[in-house]
Structure formats: C-alpha cells, structure tokens
C-alpha cells in the first residue's frame, strides 16, 4: 500500500532501480555507503561502526528516522535534504521510480 502522498511502488521494478545503488551500497554489508538491512525505522547515521559524515550523524541526533516520507525526500535529492552528506548523488527524480525503489527496499531490508 502506498504511503500518504506517494504513488504505489512495484518492488520488482524497484529491484532494477536498486542496481544504481550497487556501486556503494548492499543490503547486508557496509560498503562505501552503509548497509540497507533494517533500514525502515532506523535512526539516520546509526549503523554501528559505519563512518558517517558529521551531517548524517547530526541528522540522526536531531531525530531523523528513515521511513517512507524521509527516504522519499532523501533519495530525491540527498545533498539537498542533508547538506554535507557524503552521498554525492544527484538523486532519483522520478516519483514513481522512487516509490518502486522504496517498495523493493521495504521488501529486501526486513
């Protein structure tokens, strides 16, 4: 089911969109970016031992928790949402692609 204000996502399509993340991320291991396992409901900057940017750590300390809304905004424009993040990626601009990606992540990261 789609979260409020977001289109319904298709996890199968989202798995292909996740390919774009695979230079830096994996579901079950930290790489250049942190692991995505247990992403939903996780406080930003909180994977133990991962060397986050100061900006991401401070976002988590300020109360940022990853959910449909926050991930949608972050994935759309990472450096705009959390200036100073090390995720130097312009973002996934298409709302349907983001919804598909989040549908896949929700399924794959439980």
């Amino acid at each position: 089911m789609a979260a409020m204000g977001l289109p319904a996502g298709d996890a199968a399509r989202g798995e292909h969109i996740y390919d774009r993340c695979l230079a830096c991320h994996a579901i079950d291991r930290d790489r250049t970016g942190p692991r995505h396992a247990k992403l939903f409901g996780r406080r930003a900057g909180s994977v133990p031992g991962f060397p986050y940017s100061a900006a991401m750590k401070r976002a988590g300390e300020a109360g940022l928790v990853w959910n449909d809304q926050t991930l949608d905004k972050f994935v759309e424009n990472p450096t705009g949402f959390i200036p100073g993040t090390r995720m130097g990626y312009a973002g996934v601009k298409d709302p349907q692609e983001r919804a598909d990606l989040l549908a896949y992540l929700k399924q794959a990261t439980q």
Partner: peptide, 30 residues
C-alpha cells in the same frame, strides 16, 4: 544538524510543508 528546510519540516511531522519545500532542491537553499 544543518538540515534542509524540507528535512526540518519532516522532523516536525509536517509533510505538507515538506512537500512545499521542493524549491529547496531547485534554488540551492540546501
């Protein structure tokens, strides 16, 4: 925390404000 206005609005639970801040990303406010 140096968050964008969109992030601040989301933290405050104001999704409508967050949505209205799409200009953030375009005008370089972040």
């Amino acid at each position: 925390a140096m968050l964008s206005a969109t992030a601040i609005a989301l933290l405050a639970g104001n999704e409508a404000l967050a949505a209205s801040n799409d200009g953030d990303k375009q005008n370089g406010a972040g």
